[in-house]
Design a protein around this nucleic acid. Structure first.
Lengths: 344, 344
DNA sequence: ATCAAAAATGAAAAGGTTTACATTCCGCTC
DNA sequence: GAGCGGAATGTAAACCTTTTCATTTTTGAT
């Protein structure tokens, strides 16, 4: 007994008014007479009418939907950013489509096509890579041109582009984390990095190096180990460090997962955290507080990053003037129990 | 210099064919002559044409999009399920819209309106609560009726409904986890539950009780503590247990987060895991392996759950006959290092 | 060369809204 | 009571596809 859903025509007929009046009664109730409004609402109620959003979008050429490209939903780091985006979007009557790209360019293109195909009004990039839109002519320099939809970049910055960006002060965070270790008396401080081509990796590494420079500690290349942001790579890095000979007295990891892996490996090697080696992470994910010992880490205001990004995008979409194209937020060091002075 | 995007008319004009031919060339390239196809593709390329999906959807009355309602994206447990859903959807040319409801019925309704308003073809529920669709007439019994869109429930089951469901054998999993503790020699086994109105909580509690019954161990109500699936509630439960007097020798937690919290609290109380008290979790989230000690837990085939659910939904949407409306998957116990025999 | 069948194409309708523009209605003022 | 202005309403176009149905072209057999 599945009947076709009611259309605006049905409502108009039932209410004894024109479809224009129905549309107006629903969109801007105040510009319609009381009696008409009442009749329309009644008919809507009786028929269980819901406007066909596809038709509306087609006519309005706006979807109230934004795509968010996230490299990996499974990464707890992104969830809170997404939540922030969500709340800002919801507050301004927008919906978000989360595209989990798994760093697969094909996936990215697929989702980007959403905005190209008018299924979404704008794009928020959490991955720092600009998807190449199909059928899009771009010659390096002029990105946000003709066919390009409104785009906002969050979390990462895309060095060559002029896109609106909100990001965390990664270099500053890394610098103060490393400086903290130095203040505690450490000199042999290892750094486990993310993937080398990642801009976050580069910024955090730069911060680490800057702090060492500030303290006139010579850089020891052997203490910089490449990871990939995974727990396992944190483990592996520590094992590698162990195999190389002397352990450092402290390790600064480019994210919390690697720090957690590192702690596990340090314990497995029979040493204690923080008595034998201090560990510091980056991001302050949910589990940072739950590991043993609770992880000292650089806190990122993730919800705020998400909100700021979404509001930026909405401002662009609404044609509001945007004050500053790039906003840099910063957080602070969350001191817990994974850092201590080195042993005498 | 932002010009309007090219439409199918532009392509048709440029290619010197009718819009019908353009449409066909793009949809079903093989029913069009080679020459026409070539001309069309060329024109598309030159104009950078992308079909307006809103218009297409309106005409086809299908969006190739499904909404997934998840109670909390931040919960790492759901990420893998989402990934499974995503991969199955992607394989069959569908996209998913992830609706983070935060257990807020208003949010749920908002997202459900998507399918009501024809912005999505179907709905996957990860939260086990049926959103009330606006303007929807339902009288308890007959849920999936007239206006109801295709819905599939994953992870949880909704007892009163006849909706297609794929879920994990929660009772069985809890039972075998508890039985394992009993086999190890434990008799005083505490259980930290989830929120009492949650169906998962109920099923897992039932499994716990069944295992005790199997072993003829009398149920001790004092050993059943209510949690809410959060790390903190796991901590609190252990503190409560401690305050109550005797510690159990083992704790079965209704999820991994609470188990992680429990381990932290047990350590904080000066006892060791597993030597003094064994802990077992549920879900096998990513971090289960990274905590100290690595957590023994009930593994759920999350990706598979997601895939199965999505394929079920797609079968319904395609009108394929579906063999069995409800599928129960099961996993196994992941034995790590948080369980040991009780001390003599 | 003729014809039938098959293949390719085009014209036009349909899909459900919003909205520009035209019209009607109502209450005023003079 | 004519004229006017503003509010309320209706008509019809526009949004851009896909797809039905009719028409034309091609193919292949005779």
């Amino acid at each position: 007994m599945t009947s076709k859903p009611a259309t605006i025509d049905d409502v108009a007929r039932r209410a004894g008014v024109s479809i224009a009046t129905v549309s107006r009664a629903l969109q801007k109730p105040n510009i319609v007479s009381d009696s008409a409004r009442e009749k329309v609402f009644e008919a809507v109620e009786e028929l269980g009418y819901t406007a066909n959003v596809m038709a509306r979008n087609l006519r309005r050429n706006r979807t109230n939907m934004a795509v968010v490209l996230v490299p990996n939903i499974g990464n707890p780091f992104f969830s809170e950013i997404l939540a922030g985006i969500e709340s800002a979007a919801s507050a301004r009557n927008y919906n978000i489509l989360i595209g989990d790209t798994e760093n697969d360019p094909a996936r990215e293109r697929e989702y980007a096509a959403f905005v190209r195909g008018h299924q979404a009004d704008g794009l928020i990039l959490l991955n720092g890579r600009l998807p190449s839109l199909p059928g899009d002519r771009r010659d390096g320099a002029n990105l946000q041109t003709s066919a390009m939809p409104p785009i906002v970049v969050a979390c990462e910055r895309i060095p060559e582009s002029a896109l609106p960006t909100v990001c965390f002060d990664n270099t500053g965070g890394a610098r103060s984390a490393t400086a903290y270790l130095i203040r505690m008396g450490h000199r042999r401080i290892a750094h486990i990095t993310g993937p080398p081509d990642n801009i976050l990796t580069q910024d955090r590494l730069a911060g680490y190096q800057a702090a060492l420079g500030d303290a006139k500690i010579p850089l020891d290349e052997n203490l910089i180990i490449e990871g990939d942001f995974s727990i396992e790579s944190g483990r592996a890095a520590i094992r590698l460090l162990g195999a190389l000979g002397e352990f450092p007295t402290a390790v600064f990891c480019a994210n919390d997962e690697m720090a957690i892996g590192a702690i596990a490996a340090i314990k497995a090697a029979g040493k204690r955290v923080p008595e034998d080696v201090s560990v510091i992470g980056f991001d302050d994910i949910q589990f940072a507080d739950a590991v043993d010992p609770p992880l000292t880490t650089v806190h990122q205001p993730r919800a705020e990053i998400g909100q700021t990004a979404m509001n930026l995008l909405l401002d662009v979409l609404d044609g509001n003037p945007i004050a500053q194209k790039t906003r840099v937020l910063d957080g602070g060091l969350r001191k817990r129990d994974s850092v201590a002075p080195p042993r005498a």
